[in-house]
Amino acid sequence: MQYKGRGFTVVCAVVATLAGFLMLLTFLSHSAESENEEELPKKFFIAPPPFTPGIFPCSQCHQGMPANRKPRKLEQMHQDIVLKHMPNGWCFDCHNPDDRDKLRLANGRLIKFEESYYLCGQCHGTVFRDWKVGLHGKRTGMWNGEKKYLLCVNCHWPHEPTFKPIQPLPPPVRPSDIK
């Protein structure tokens, strides 16, 4: 066996590190996006959450503020939000008291506001299943291409999700009314 010299060892080490690093990267990136890619179709874009302007990120105000976990009627702020959803529920059933920029699932997992459908899907599983396929909710975009998926909250305000009745557009003209 011939002695290749020190340069060879260095090259081998660099190549090995690079390869390992690349593998790590792919593994990480794959696991991070795996949930989304498995469940939602390839070409999609999800609308951003419809925040009231300036309200997000919540940590603007809530950083450092102690969390009062006692269910009560709010008085100083957010008193206009009356929860008419989930009887006997209150804010911290969905919002995360420790980090207001996230939502909290029942199993303790934290999710971003952009992924709020997981939260709704906990109780509304059948609707979530339909939504993932594209069968629930307003449908815009391309039927054979990029479909636009709206978040649940883009249509249903989570604090009072029932749709209010709206005024219908005019009925057709009766033939007897045509002059």
Partner: peptide
């Protein structure tokens, strides 16, 4: 088909 209430759904 000529329904025209103030609000829908009724």
């Amino acid at each position: 088909k000529y329904y025209n209430p103030p609000m829908v759904p009724e």
